[in-house]
């Protein structure tokens, strides 16, 4: 049984990069008639006007209005997905302390898609699952696993570069190492891993991370 999904997108304090990626991923579904857009920042009228099967929320919560809006969105959405580094870990605005709350500090979410920005394949995977009525799997792999699988040379071993790969979520096709640079952690920590060994190698490693340092230290809750 394939269900037609009504999908909404909410933008908080962020750059629209994840929503733009979601729009690209959804366009073929929309043209086929499998997905219908409700309120979706960037593409349609952003006023919430009904209930939605799936809601994507991008960004961190920086104002009281955004907090109220997110709570309203939660009520209208059956399956709420927090997307991207800003929603999950604070994003670059969390470099300045005290400016932004995480989505999960305000409402519960049904699924998380990490990335800065997220990847199209992640959106398609979730939509395919929800159309079939199954639950998407939880990602747990680290970037190191991905480098091995993609046969990308380890930049930490061969070049001596600082790489957050052992602690960071996979899913980017080992992007930075494949361009000869160390991972700077834009996808955030992988559950169950620790950044401690990396910090022992290079105490400044986390300064390079785009995600909230405090959150990275605490790990995925």
């Amino acid at each position: 049984m394939v269900r037609k999904l009504k999908v909404a997108g909410l933008k908080l304090a962020s750059c629209s990069g994840c929503l733009a990626t979601i729009a690209d991923a959804l366009l073929p579904y929309i043209l086929k008639g499998d997905v219908e857009l409700g309120c979706f920042a960037l593409l349609t009228d952003p006023e919430m006007d009904g209930e939605y099967d799936v809601g994507f929320v991008e960004g961190s919560v920086a104002t009281e209005e955004q907090e109220a809006e997110l709570k309203e969105f939660r009520k209208r959405v059956k399956f709420l997905i927090a997307v991207g580094a800003c929603a999950l870990f604070g994003g670059p605005q969390s470099i300045n302390p005290g400016i932004a709350k995480l989505v999960e500090d305000v409402v519960g979410v049904d699924y998380r898609i990490p990335g800065c920005p997220i990847e199209e394949w992640q959106v398609k995977e979730v939509i395919n699952h929800l159309m079939r009525g199954t639950r998407p799997p939880k990602e747990t792999e680290t970037l190191c696993t991905e480098c091995r699988r993609m046969n990308v040379q380890c930049v930490a071993i061969t070049e001596g570069l600082t790489c957050l790969g052992p602690a960071v979520m996979a899913g980017c096709s080992a992007l930075c190492p494949s361009f000869g640079r160390g991972c700077y952690g834009c996808r955030g920590p992988s559950p169950g891993t620790s950044v401690k060994p990396i910090l022992e190698l290079d105490p400044n490693a986390l300064n390079k991370a785009i995600v909230s340092q405090e959150k990275v230290r605490r790990g995925w809750r």
Binding site: S16, G17, G91, P92
Partner: peptide, 18 residues
Amino acid sequence: RHYSEVPDITSRVCGLCP
């Protein structure tokens, strides 16, 4: 921040023109 980190941070201002 060191200047070498700047291009990775400034791109985050915008998801349409990073």
